[in-house]
Design a protein around this nucleic acid. Structure first.
Lengths: 126, 126
DNA sequence: CTAGGACTTGGAGTGGACTCCAACGCAAAC
DNA sequence: GTTTGCGTTGGAGTCCACTCCAAGTCCTAG
């Protein structure tokens, strides 16, 4: 459910954030715990309230995770972001390196997909 | 090292088979144990001797594994192969289903690769 | 014949990434 | 104002796919 602090800045409970980000609530708490997400704002009684900025960051994390980046490297990236703009060259390097890994993975998948197709064709011909 | 039983049928020790298949020796033993590989032929003293047919099967397994098929499903496939030719339609179904999964994975990777590229471009523009 | 490397086993341990739990507090709806 | 359900915590547990270990045997090069 959406919870508004004021007229202009929507915030989200962890459940809503889970729904929107595609992570489970447990994963969100886990990510916060290990420093992948900055400490999330809380209500007076301690409940988390995620912002749109949090959700955007989570979108980036999801992209990195789903392309196979290990949590440790995501943590490194999160650290760089926290350290400020002077780390941008390093962030670029990290992302470029990751992109190469993704490209290799895709090429490997494509080749193996073809092998599978060949296998299917063979079975069809039997 | 290659060990020849006779002039026509080369066989391989587990170490050589590991080198050729890309699996570790431990993984080969593990796969045999859980039934992904048929019981491998042995020397009189109990050492494994893999054949070219074993290596070919391992190539298939490697392809399935590297495209993300869970061990359990590979075991199902291995069972079908053992059951004989009447399971070919079922094997085709299994492989086609898997190919769909691989295609989806590739599409997802491609989309996320683009997102990463956009991020890199953004950082370059800052 | 002997050294050193490759192989054997059953079973325990690892690593990564969550995922679940209990016991509790807080919120929203009626 | 009570029920239903969402949220909190620290810590333990799970899952997958290996990976390692110890203690022993086997093989081959010199």
């Amino acid at each position: 459910m959406l919870v508004a602090d004021n007229a202009t800045a929507p915030t989200y409970t962890i459940g809503e954030c889970a729904r929107r980000s595609g992570f489970t609530m447990d994963t969100l708490r886990y990510y916060e715990r290990i420093g992948l997400i900055d400490d999330v704002r809380r209500t007076a009684t301690g409940q988390r309230r995620f912002t749109d900025a949090d959700l955007e960051w989570l979108g980036t994390l999801k992209c990195l995770r789903d392309t196979g980046m290990p949590v440790e490297q995501m943590a490194r990236f999160a650290d760089l972001v926290r350290e400020g703009d002077h780390t941008i060259p390093e962030r670029i390097r990290l992302l470029e390196e990751h992109r190469v890994a993704v490209d290799e993975r895709m090429a490997d998948l494509a080749a193996k997909r073809d092998y599978i197709s060949g296998k299917i064709d063979y079975y069809r011909s039997v």
